[in-house]
Design a protein around this nucleic acid. Structure first.
Lengths: 295, 295
DNA sequence: CATACCGGTGCATTTTTTGCACCACTTCCA
DNA sequence: TGGAAGTGGTGCAAAAAATGCACCGGTATG
């Protein structure tokens, strides 16, 4: 798209913070790039960069424009996807921001299933916490977000939501492993291995503990859900996880027991995209598949 | 925006149906235009026009692209508006598709009020029936639609809705003029002047008449609401209109009496825009003002 | 069968873009 | 304090791209 090159240049200058550095990325001379930026600003009707002694920085008008550029580019990608669809070719790329819990079983399974049908569709999966996932959508760094208990949801358009109770995770040999359901207070008798505070499960547990006048003091706090599972598997401690991140068949040495809803209410796993966006074909189809799988 | 000229050219060819005609509009030679279209198609990766013996026509890929072009242009206009806002200038243009009933009092008043605050904002008002209004939004020919009983509402995002009972309109000297409320059957004793069948009021009346086993046989059928009022004013006939199109103070020689809701249920007046669009600043502010005025 | 459209193309010309060399300025550090 | 290493900006000639002109081959239309 030669006529959109100026957009690439603007983004390059924004990224590198200087015309000269951006010129290298763009395979063009600094002077040529400089003049194209100036010509654009003249056409656009206002400056989009602040000229600082150390380089260039987007001004507020430039920020607005940058958002337009990204939106524009994404929409063009969507059109390309739909045109490819027209000619019977199913190509495309899907970028997903997701919570850690989706990584071990759910997403690998769904992506494989999708690619079995459309082998030319490729994927990017980025692990993001509740806040970062939404920022990814806003910056057009991801098409879809699949997040447990997202933070504010202002720019988040929900495609599907599903309830996820909090599950206690422990060794199959654990004294509580045989229970059908567990009370939170029973869990607190044992060592706890908890995800760090930015995670939704931890948030729900902290709130639940506060309600019964307790404070969670984990034996191990980690930002890795793998760590939670493994630590729980080989000791007497109890970890916590949501069902979508667990697979009983794959791990017979472990036991997963739901916590009573009256203690820990559980949370919602949300599938969504940036409010107001029209997704590319591939992303939309994948989103539909995921929504079906979640129900 | 020189770098977007190719979009204008594509639209010009689409409009005129031929490169040579489009070339005149674009102030360019047919050969140059031809080559730019070809170059674009090569970059884009697929043809966007069908070459017919009589000229050019968009193919499905072209239709998709055209929608992107319009969306992109509108979003660029939005950015321009917001940038103008940044510099303290409140400029802009608002395009409205509306039902006829809004023309005599409501819209003139609201537009004047808005322009008193922002004199540099200009307006386009197009009268559209229930189907055309929505098509206008889809084609990006209007930013806002203000429609009584719109037809399908698939691409219509509702900003505000307000109930409008059907009112009987008659001369102040009419025998029924003194009533607080009228039954439909009483009206049918007199000559009727009705809007044509594409209008929402007529639709509601036809349905209501059918429910009591009657068929409306108007003495005068017209597509002008002015005509309805004037014909009713100077005779014994009864017209129909919704409250937003009436102004009792301005017309003391006339009487407006609501029809009983159990006979004619009344309808909704909808304010909305194209689903998923982000409106330019001026349009959004005006929409908010209209929504307030309607409540 | 002639005419009047249509889109497409080779080539000379015009317009635009680019690269090079250099300027003015700020920051940073010896 | 002064020079080196950055920054964005500019005049000018060379390179590249876009354009206009003249013309081709085709198809409807009367």
């Amino acid at each position: 798209m030669r006529h959109l090159l100026i957009y690439d240049m603007i983004e390059a200058v924004h990224r590198s913070g200087s015309i000269r550095k951006a010129a290298e990325d763009t395979n063009i001379t600094a002077s040529a790039l400089n003049r194209r930026i100036q010509a654009f600003e003249k056409e656009f009707g206002s400056e989009i960069f602040e000229r600082l002694p150390r380089g260039m920085r987007l001004n507020p008008a430039g920020e607005l424009l940058l958002h337009h550029i990204r939106l524009q580019r994404q929409d063009m990608a969507r059109v390309h996807g739909q045109v490819a669809d027209l000619s019977g070719i199913r190509r495309g790329h899907v970028r997903i921001a997701c919570s850690q819990a989706l990584l071990p079983y759910f997403l690998p399974r769904e992506i494989s299933k999708y690619r079995a049908e459309f082998p030319d569709v490729t994927f990017t999966v980025n692990v993001r916490d509740r806040i970062q996932a939404e920022r990814d959508l806003v910056n057009f760094d991801s098409d879809l977000a699949l997040v447990f208990e997202p933070a504010h949801m202002v720019d988040f358009e929900v495609l599907h939501a599903v309830h996820q109770p909090v599950m206690a995770v422990m060794s199959a040999a654990h004294p509580l492993a045989g229970q059908q359901i567990l009370r939170l207070r029973d869990c607190l008798e044992y060592d706890l291995v908890l995800p760090a505070s930015q995670f939704g499960v931890r948030l729900l547990l902290d709130q639940a503990a506060a309600r019964i006048g307790r404070k969670l003091e984990p034996a191990l706090e980690t930002d890795s859900f793998d760590m939670v599972r493994h630590f729980a598997a080989y000791g007497q401690s109890i970890g916590f996880q949501i069902p979508v991140g667990l697979n009983a068949l794959a791990r017979p040495e472990m036991a997963f027991v739901p916590i009573a809803e009256r203690d820990v209410a559980g949370g919602q796993l949300y599938l969504g995209h940036l409010r107001g966006r029209t997704l590319p074909v591939a992303s939309l189809k994948f989103a539909n598949q995921v929504a079906t799988a979640l129900s």
